[in-house]
């Protein structure tokens, strides 16, 4: 179990890394265990989900006809 123990800082780094690549099995397990036991990290995870959705909507917005056409 000790091998799976991670600090919030390490978990935040894993959550950020997960946005761009697949995590190794051990990291995924450590992440899941930590998120079950921590108050702060699930909030950080939700913030990243917010950002992911915001970027998707922004991509659509940049081509939307009602977006601002002038600087």
């Amino acid at each position: 179990m000790k091998l799976l123990r991670r600090s919030c800082k390490q978990v935040a780094a894993l959550l950020l890394a997960r946005e761009d690549r697949d995590l190794p099995w051990a990291d995924r397990c450590a992440l899941r265990l930590h998120l079950l036991a921590c108050d702060a990290c699930p909030r950080f995870e939700r913030q990243l989900l917010h950002m992911r959705n915001a970027m998707r909507q922004w991509r659509n917005y940049t081509t939307a006809e009602d977006a601002e056409s002038t600087d």
Binding site: S7, C8, K9, A12, A40, R43, F44, R46, Q47
Partner: peptide
């Protein structure tokens, strides 16, 4: 390694 402040609820 702990958060300095609890991340805000967005």
């Amino acid at each position: 390694g702990h958060f300095a402040e609890l991340p805000a609820d967005w």
